[in-house]
Design a protein around this nucleic acid. Structure first.
Lengths: 225, 225
DNA sequence: GTTGACACGTGAGGC
DNA sequence: TGCCTCACGTGTCAA
């Protein structure tokens, strides 16, 4: 359609003079020189140059240069943008994952308290030991009460009410550490010959036992003390 | 439009053959029909359409669309690529930083408290702690704060903010127990490289030292750790 | 009426 | 040679 119109227009223009707007006229100068006149000739030239400059600028941004062609420049830019978008997505995911890990670690730091697992366990033991030492009564374990609840996948909250017995808590902590548990945010209170121990239990990541199992474990340990 | 063009071109091409290379000539067919002849007319048209398609595809990738212009499409693509590059850079930096932190934490985990002071500073813990304990006495290290108050004749209340260090708390407790003190109602919290220990100190009856003396004792112990 | 943007056909030049 | 790419001038349409 357009080409048909153009051809007709060109025919008319070439053949006869037209005074319409955007008047471009081809004046015959002399015998063989044809002078082209168009009002937007210069503007069009500027536009073309600008576009070319933009394209070159775009090409300068793309590291993977396969060709100088206009089409390939754009294609390269497209693939580059896609790669960048993918990179951003991947990096964002990775960063989120890292943040989650950091958050978890920071949580672990906060709850765990003592840096090394061993240290923490010893720390808990010491606390318990001192509490034990502060009261040197002997008794049996028939008043032991143990509560274990899940906080999340890797953390348990436990409460133990335990009759005072020398070294009991130490051994408890040591035994728990042996099987991979650590005590964090431990609080020990003594009252009327009993310990009240509340603590967060941090298990080995991904290998946390069920609360009931931990409770049984604690029971066994206390029984063996 | 396009199909019409193509058909027209095909028609024109089919009508007459020209053997000149790239030479297009306008032949009069009949009385008023002018047939344009160029061998690359169709190819050029394809090329233009392909370029346009690429541009549209590029535009489809860029979220910030200001205009449909060819130039603005490219400009938008340029700015978008720059933004993406910046994002990638920033995310990479952030990720590197995160990895460094993780590395540091794991190192600190391994070396157990060597970098605790730096970590405390890094997290701004020291400032907070000093603000909290600014009225307290200073010990030999910047990051240790000790407060000791009398509760009654046989009991002291103490608070220690201590840089995390392997075995520090253990040794502290052991040393205190050696000289006849016991810890009761102890709470230990660790956060970002610091211990916060609050405890009641029970001394041997009738031999309780003054609070200052206990504080000095604690400082000596900590200093020796 | 002017301006900007487009598509078009075409010639030139590079593999 | 043919194919491909580009720049150019131009007509047309919309703002």
């Amino acid at each position: 359609m357009e080409s048909l119109d153009f051809s007709l227009d060109d025919l008319s223009i070439g053949e006869e003079r037209n005074s319409e707007r955007n008047i471009n006229w081809r004046g015959q100068v002399g015998d063989d020189t044809v002078v082209y006149k168009s009002k937007n000739l210069l503007a069009e030239r500027r536009r073309r140059h600008k576009l070319k400059a933009r394209l070159l600028e775009l090409r300068g941004l793309v590291p993977n240069i396969t060709n100088m062609n206009r089409a390939t420049i754009i294609v390269d830019a497209i693939t580059y943008i896609q790669k960048l978008q993918k990179d951003v997505r991947d990096l964002g995911d990775q960063l989120l994952e890292m943040e989650a890990i950091l958050e978890e670690e920071s949580k672990a730091w906060k709850t765990e308290g003592i840096g090394a697992a061993e240290e923490m366990k010893k720390w808990g033991i010491k606390v318990t030991l001192f509490l034990i030492n502060s009261y040197n009564l002997h008794s049996h374990t028939h008043t032991t009460e143990i509560t274990v609840n899940h906080i999340d996948a890797d953390n348990l909250w436990m409460k133990i009410i335990l009759e005072k017995k020398r070294g009991a808590c130490t051994k408890l902590m040591e035994a728990m550490s042996v099987v991979g548990f650590e005590f964090t945010d431990t609080s020990v209170t003594t009252s009327k010959g009993a310990y009240l121990i509340t603590s967060c239990l941090v298990g080995i990541r991904g290998r946390m036992l069920a609360a009931d199992q931990v409770r049984e474990l604690l029971m066994d340990i206390i029984r063996s003390i």
